[in-house]
Write a protein that binds this DNA or RNA. Sequence first.
DNA 1: CATTTATCGTTAGCCTCCTAACCGTCTGCC
DNA 2: GGCAGACGGTTAGGAGGCTAACGATAAATG
Lengths: 198, 198
Amino acid sequence: MPLLLLKDLPRYECLIESAKEFPDLDPSAAEAYLHLLRAGDDAFSVSQRNLDEHGISQGRFCVLMLLWRSVHLPATELLGAKSCGDGPRTPAELAEGANVTRATMTGLIDTLERDGFVKREPDPVDRRMMSVRLTAKAEQFLHDFLPGHFRTTAKLMSTLSESERKTLVRLLTKISTQAAAMFGGPATVPAELATRAV
Amino acid sequence: MPLLLLKDLPRYECLIESAKEFPDLDPSAAEAYLHLLRAGDDAFSVSQRNLDEHGISQGRFCVLMLLWRSVHLPATELLGAKSCGDGPRTPAELAEGANVTRATMTGLIDTLERDGFVKREPDPVDRRMMSVRLTAKAEQFLHDFLPGHFRTTAKLMSTLSESERKTLVRLLTKISTQAAAMFGGPATVPAELATRAV
DNA sequence: CATTTATCGTTAGCCTCCTAACCGTCTGCC
DNA sequence: GGCAGACGGTTAGGAGGCTAACGATAAATG
């Protein structure tokens, strides 16, 4: 469980009730917000469980996937990664791609290297840099693990039709975009911004 | 940031490409899954930022809300809580409601009590139990904080129409339900699924 | 009534994330 | 060439989760 979250969401009538006390409370917005966090946490927990059984954490899996991407999809697509080249990548790039600090990435690579999944190699050109590369063991692990992971994902979404999935992705993308706009924006949200902004 | 997550999601064409190598990969399911985690994380980060500015963590906020709920909505709705009574609640109930272990709740209450937001009182009947109660300081804090929090939530969802919000909640509920079913189910992906997929 | 079992809150120790600071290296400017 | 600043990776220390175990108390069972 990644984030502390209410187990039982409040009912919609309760939100309406609370809105009488707090005029700023938008019941349908709050409902959507809470369900989003709830569903995201549920989906995460399901995949987390899959990972736990294989003794690998979400963070480590993320690093492996980033490295795997850079190996298996080098020329076809860049996937938004800055590195155009194929092959290994640096800790800083991995930290950027995984949305963690460089310090955190150091720790992740430490344990991955200790367990034989990756190998550090000094960059021959820039002696500040390291290159991180997947080992054969990691390739084998992913080859064994990924099919089950994909099946879990497919099963999780099996309750949604193709058109529902498209709709969901469209709505979620809207939210992510809005969140990005808000995150870059002002720290505190003054009242006048609520109307001015998008 | 609660969970380590890919910053840039793979493009849909890449998922289709990868599906050639992994027949178990359902591109639209994977896309929906990744967007769900991404959007959930984004929404969480926005509210997290709000909390950070007030020097309170997500976990502590969760506890305060649970206690506040039990005070302000005692008779009208039970909100799924087991406790039917009004007023204070026990650490075990709070842990249940916040989806954390009792040990974690002990730590949260420790810091909340240290900062003067809650107060522990021994239960006069059952001497194993403690009662946790909001202080006046916490009531004041929530009164000051919640309106901004609700405005942030409303702004985050402002890109969605009422009908879109309803649709989103419906789809997310489906996913949560499916996740619950999978979580209670078998640990490893059963053979019937594996054989069927391959 | 005595003993076993279950429950409550807490403690101890681990893991993973974070921030802040550090050292070595590269780069730009004089 | 030499030096200030930027950048890459690491280290140290803190916060917040977790599990496993503990004493104290209540409840169930003989």
